[in-house]
Amino acid sequence: MTSFIGKRALASGISLIGLVILVFFLSRLTGDPTNLYLPLDASIEAREQFRDMNGFNDPLIVQFGRYVADLVRGDFGQSLQQARPAMEVVLQAFAWTLWLAVITMTCVTVAAIVIGSLAAFRVGGIFDRLATFFSLVGASAPDFWLAIVAIVIFAVNLQWLPTSGTGTPWHWVLPVAVLFIRPFGLILQVVRGSMISVLSSAYVKTARAKGVRTRPIIFVHGLRNAMLPVITVIGDQAAAILNGAVVIETIFGFPGIGKLMIDSILLRDFSVVLASIMVSALAIFIMNMLIDIAYAMLDPRIRY
């Protein structure tokens, strides 16, 4: 197990290093941030001073060397925009996104598993058809459009919920609800498909011959086996949110890491971009480990 984690960490570490290098150079190629931060009428000297201060005048390779040297000392650089340590900015935003992901994925998982299992039990029944159709609709809907429609209906017309921002629990309702729909549709499809094949398996036939009641057949014999492919998809979807639910965070003015990344790229706040990438890469690595552990817990045949 330890050697397995070690191997995975090594692989992830290497691809993270590659990613950091790539993003470092690509993002510098997008242009000079000076004009974005100083007023239009700033003097040439002031501009030059800003560049000097932030080291933008040095060759790229020197800038990169300095960045790496700072990293080794645990310094992730300063945010140009907020004049605070970049990592502090990123962690603050990440906490918001983490909560968003946890709440959304918990709701999605519970709902998709229960509804998907029940749909699979009576394939072709009215419940199954409704669940299948609506999950397909959910999986097909663009989230930015759902967000807009939800805002028009619930915030503008009915005025039940706030349009954007944070503060009260009510601010969470729309983002979570909109984020919920796509993963729910996708995961429900997988649960249903996986459950159908498990319920037609030989060991479920044995359980029926044993006289096991219907509910334990679905939720004890069936579900644990059916969960294996489902877990992978749950992981993918959670990763997508952790990587930044950019669109949703932008529309709802939610101060998460997705919005932060986009803003930082547009404002060429390089240190923040790089710090965000590292944080979300670490988060996704941890989550993948959790998924693998869940796999091993569910299926005794899997040993790492």
Partner: peptide, 10 residues
Amino acid sequence: DPLAHLNPVY
């Protein structure tokens, strides 16, 4: 085929 007829995860 008892391998297929026994639940693999219990």
